[in-house]
Write a protein that binds this DNA or RNA. Structure first.
Lengths: 237, 237
DNA sequence: TGACTACTACGTACGCTGTACTTAGTGAGG
DNA sequence: CCTCACTAAGTACAGCGTACGTAGTAGTCA
């Protein structure tokens, strides 16, 4: 994290092929597809340079001819997933179009649960990220606002989608991976929280848990969050 | 990530001391402080079990008596940082109080840049997380809304703070770690983006970059995002 | 009091990681 | 044809999380 100095270039700036020497055995798309296949099937932690090389059928170190650092492999993966975004002709209702964008991003992240973890550097300017950004701007054409505001809207939307899907995935993961049932998990959680609450130090949390104990509809929560966020950009305020 | 079955308990459920056998040489606070010290000084990647044990002055495997998994060490760190939150008596203006909460969280994350990366499991119910949550609810007492809505507000606020600070930190890291100056970095970025834009595939991005080329005030962006989000919870809508 | 036993402490070892470095082979440009 | 940038791959190293086994310690109970 600290002492890297040699090659700070972003991978999209270097050409995939220079024309000299033997032609490469694999394309970036091949490599990204292999990594995505592994991550989808076995989780992001299973994506190692050795494992991807094995999946491709080449030596481990050969991979470094295509991908100078592992971080760049991640960038390839994010770009490949971004390529699955379906881009349509905007219909003139920016709110509806942005909601559709958000739901599609959410579906994409549920299909590739490793995606949110790799999205922290927000803007990598990969080819598909540029296409996505341009499409969002096209959806926002009907909104009377400067481009700066539109970019802020897009950033905020992406942030909310990432945040909420991360939460959804963590919840699902907990539910699935534990050897107990969902009820046992909830019972244990309530027992622990109940013990803390019983101290009387947290009267409002006690009231909150007494008020609604039913299971929460995460999709509805997501929908409400989106709506509230988009409200903040309505021009007639 | 898949096959863990033995000890799924959360660390806060197990008592720090049972009373039997020799008394432990360190407290959880000691361990958390050591890990935080390392993370602050050398980055999160420098926090390894060996390194923390060395910082404490004990053998590597002794640490596992206190912290069953490394993930639990992370929980200790997040809780320790959360303890730095200053909790005040709410003043009756929930909007002002929540803004203050957000700015304090932001400052906390800037002081401990590793914090956002460890916050993905959103709610760990650590002692200080409970105190923080209760305090937020107290700030929201004047807001006429059910507790479910208030919890959604708090979650959304935390998500936005984390998202934006992550972005700020990534930007700062790029600026600092590269061997070139900020201008060179910008020039290179603009050269690359300019090349992509020159293809004519991204007319709106071209317009956006033509419209405002000045440096962006990240704090102002953060402030606007917060304001828009809180607008969505105003009762008089 | 002594025996028991839960607990702390910690060294060794295993399988895994990213990747620096080295060597050999290939094929297009001058 | 020669040259040299490029691909391919093997070896090696430092570091990681942690399973396992052993030795010592101190509260608890007969």
């Amino acid at each position: 994290m600290a002492g890297r100095a040699a090659e700070p270039e972003v991978i999209w700036a270097r050409p995939e092929r220079t024309g000299r020497g033997p032609r490469p055995a694999y394309t970036r798309a091949d490599i990204a597809a292999a990594a995505v296949r592994i991550a989808d099937a076995e989780g992001l932690d299973a994506v190692s340079m050795r494992r991807v090389a094995a999946e491709l059928g080449c030596g481990t170190m050969s991979l470094y001819n295509y991908v100078p650092r592992k971080e760049d492999l991640y960038e390839l993966m994010v770009d490949a997933a971004g390529g699955e975004h379906e881009l349509w002709e905007p219909g003139g209702d920016w709110r509806a179009d942005m909601l559709r964008v958000a739901h599609q991003s959410r579906a994409l992240m549920h299909r590739h649960p490793w995606l949110p973890r790799l999205m922290s550097p927000v803007y990598g300017f990969s080819p598909n990220a540029l296409r996505y950004l341009e499409h969002c701007l096209a959806c926002l054409d009907p909104l009377p606002a400067p481009y700066g505001t539109k970019l802020e809207l897009i950033a905020m939307l992406n942030g909310i989608v990432t945040t909420y899907v991360t939460n959804e995935l963590a919840t699902a993961e907990r539910t699935r991976s534990l050897p107990w049932s969902q009820e046992q998990e909830n019972a244990m959680r309530i027992a622990y929280l109940g013990g803390r609450i019983a101290t009387g130090e947290y009267p409002r949390m006690a009231a909150a848990f007494a008020q609604d104990a039913g299971p929460i509809d995460l999709e509805a929560v997501f929908e409400r969050a989106l709506g509230r966020m988009l409200d903040g950009f309505e021009p007639r305020r």
